[in-house]
């Protein structure tokens, strides 16, 4: 009985600490966006939602956030998988296994600053290109930060995500005995490319799918990096939401909340799709 009580209390505590704040926050945002609460509450209205959903800039924001997250994760995954499948032991033993943690310990805002220093028009690469005679003035250096393609944001996220995925996949490689799978595939006749693309990559991605997805959502909702490296004309969701919340016009606040609720719905839909995909794989045919 005591054990049962303790388990129930544990569950209650978990729900209290994890679910309640999120549900409360989203609930408040929903009520605010519907005009049911807040300083400018005017009673139940769908006007703010209509405003947001009809605004092309909102859809550009969602699309841009998805694009940045997708490209960043794909590049980081490609780098991490290539490193791990080329030399798996390098990242679990020896000095590199410690050094690879370094980029992970750097705060996002500091990483954004580094990237700004590296890729900006007055940055290190620009100066180097100038010294090498590749450009005659620093202003000729291409726009790699605060640009409409999110190059700076993507580079910063890749620099942070690639080491994370490398450590993650290197440990998966060991725990899932991928070396044995690859040996087995070799004796079945697989060449190097076949081993990588028919065995190594699918096994690592299958096992790591949930983590990859969570990191994708993290990048999509990131704030500090796009704040420093992003463009004003095409914004990521978090930047647009915060800017609307902090405007002098109090009428913008319900719209900011509507954006945050819409973004939450998108996350829940994507998460549900992932769970459905996972369950489908496990279901007997």
């Amino acid at each position: 009985m005591q054990a049962n009580g303790a388990a129930q209390f544990g569950r209650f505590l978990f729900v209290l600490l994890s679910a309640v704040p999120i549900v409360a926050g989203v609930g408040y945002a929903l009520l605010y966006s519907l005009g049911l609460t807040g300083v400018m509450a005017e009673g139940m209205t769908g006007a703010h939602w209509r405003e947001v959903l009809r605004d092309a800039a909102f859809w550009r924001t969602i699309g841009f956030s998805l694009y940045v997250a997708l490209v960043s994760i794909l590049i980081a995954l490609a780098i991490a998988l290539a490193l791990v499948l080329r030399s798996p032991r390098t990242f679990t033993k020896g000095s590199l296994s410690y050094m690879i943690y370094l980029p992970l310990s750097i705060p996002a805002i500091v990483m954004a600053f580094f990237i700004f220093q590296l890729l900006g028009k007055g940055g290190w690469l620009s100066r180097l290109a100038h010294q090498l005679g590749m450009i005659s003035a620093l202003g000729q250096f291409p726009d790699w930060v605060n640009d409409n393609y999110g190059i700076g944001i993507i580079v910063a996220h890749v620099v942070m995500a690639a080491p994370f995925f490398t450590i993650f996949f290197a440990n998966l490689y060991e725990n899932e005995r991928l070396g044995d799978y690859l040996h087995l595939a070799t004796t079945l006749g697989a060449g190097r490319r076949q081993r990588i693309f028919r065995v190594g990559v699918p096994i690592l991605l299958r096992r790591g799918l949930a983590t990859v997805f969570l990191y994708f959502m993290f990048v999509m909702g990131s704030y500090e990096i796009p704040l420093l490296l992003g463009s004003q004309s095409v914004q990521m969701v978090s930047i647009r939401t915060i800017q609307r919340l902090q405007r002098y016009n109090l009428g913008d606040i319900p719209e900011a909340y509507a954006i945050s609720v819409a973004y939450t719905v998108l996350v829940v839909v994507l998460l549900s799709a992932l769970l459905w995909f996972n369950r489908r794989q496990m279901r007997p045919s």
Binding site: D180, T187, I203, R206
Partner: peptide, 12 residues
């Protein structure tokens, strides 16, 4: 062909 103690079926 070398077969291990565990079947090592490709999980995907």
């Amino acid at each position: 062909v070398y077969l291990y103690q565990e079947a090592l079926l490709f999980p995907h």
